[in-house]
Design a protein around this nucleic acid. Structure first.
Lengths: 247, 247
DNA sequence: TCAAAAGTGTTCTTATTACACCCATGG
DNA sequence: CCATGGGTGTAATAAGAACACTTTTGA
């Protein structure tokens, strides 16, 4: 067993990419680092995995310390392990990504939480360590996920309008010209995933929109079985000639 | 920095799930373990990541020692890190999966290679460590990949028949009643991914089939952009009533 | 001449796209 | 009465599904 001693000198961390949706904009929760390395830089929340802790548990712990939330969507994305990615030694990190309702989030007492702030994903350009790369990979994963699972459920408040839902899809899929309103509605309503609440917005300076919620049961069914959400962006005149593709 | 010493006592390995396709059957390359733990059991090929080695490099090294192949399809799948998964201590493993042409494979001089053998994926029931779980996760990944990338290119010999290609899809997707021959051909040919070689099989006791190869350029294009391969299995009478789904 | 697998088209149904105007509210 | 975003339908096209018989070869 001594021949292996050399290998037992490394550590691993988990880093969480926590996505939220607010004001029509996809956000990610970042921490301003208070210590070296990368002191003063923004980073993904993460920490060493304890010796007796499973990976998923570690990710859930960090999420909880930071947001107070449990039982939220949390999935492993990818592991990053370049030799020199961490100045303390060989540290690989297992990246997780989670989807939370920003409305449920509240600042927690844990010290790291005080340095946390939501950032627009589109405006994040530089992060500590290789965290920008991790964020990019997670965003790609989310782009895939949105076409295959009803992720709106995780990101929107309990009551929402169809336009809000559409904006969520646009924020994630980033189609050049947005999605076609009528086609979007037809498609999403035909899935029978939404429940019409017979309520409307109040206090808006235009015709108030109807409010919907997700059908819990249908949601779980789609969560297991998946679905296919494919919609071309609207109004593009110039036709691209890809014979058959998405992704 | 001493506060972190406690964390630098773990190790990580990579494990490779190497898929091949032969005789209409999806195979995986396994090693019979010569030492404890799990001596005598079948396991995925894998080893500790060297202190100065990137993860992808480690996976490629193991694949190469075993098969002699480089530049083959190799992608990270998922990391497995349950606390007690390895009897030597805290060892997490980063699982990779790769796709190889069995015809290119030859036994290598490395000692592990001598204990290697192809097994039908469907018939593998028990493996060392948590390797069965890793195999299952990788197979799931392959099921997804086949619908989204032209993986046949990686698994089939340079020349192949349409029926062989269809059998590959059936081996991976496992539809209850196989795929419809005409619909399969129509779809795959309409992608312009295949090149008709103007050759036919020889020495078969039935009408010889035409041979095809993949169009390298189209393949790389699809590899980047993805495509959508959705075909219902053939001839199911009983109609399932999923409003809209696959996966 | 038989067995075995190759090869081939059409019809029907369903999903996707493109597209433009009226409506309800607050200021 | 105006600005703002909400809400609605239809026709054309494209993709997918179902389905059965003839051909070519070796034994």
């Amino acid at each position: 067993m001594t021949e292996f001693d050399n290998y037992f000198k490394s550590a691993f961390t988990v880093d969480n990419v926590i996505f939220g949706f607010d004001e029509g904009d996809l956000k990610v929760l970042l921490i301003k680092r208070g210590e070296e390395p990368y002191k003063g830089k923004w980073a993904l929340p993460g920490y060493f995995v304890h010796p007796n802790e499973d990976l998923d548990r570690a990710a859930a712990r960090i999420l909880e310390e930071l947001t107070g939330l449990h039982h939220v969507f949390l999935e492993q994305v990818k592991t990053f392990g370049t030799v020199n990615r961490h100045p303390f030694g060989r540290v690989i990190t297992i990246a997780y990504f989670s989807l939370v309702k920003i409305s449920d989030y509240s600042i927690q007492p844990a010290s790291i939480a005080k340095k946390a702030q939501w950032h627009s994903v589109a405006k994040v350009h530089e992060l500590a360590f290789d965290h920008k790369e991790i964020l990019d990979a997670s965003f790609q994963r989310l782009k895939w996920l949105v076409r295959v699972r009803p992720v709106g459920f995780e990101l929107l408040p309990p009551k929402f309008t169809l336009t809000e839902l559409q904006h969520l899809y646009e924020a994630i899929l980033e189609p050049d010209d947005g999605l076609d309103k009528r086609n979007f509605r037809k498609k999403i309503l035909s899935m029978n995933l939404l429940v019409d609440l017979d309520e409307t917005q109040e206090g808006v300076a235009h015709r108030p929109a109807k409010l919907y919620r997700f059908d819990q049961e249908k949601y779980h069914k789609f969560q297991e079985e998946g679905f296919s959400f494919e919609l071309k962006e609207s109004k593009r005149k110039e036709k691209k000639k890809h014979s058959k593709l998405h992704v």
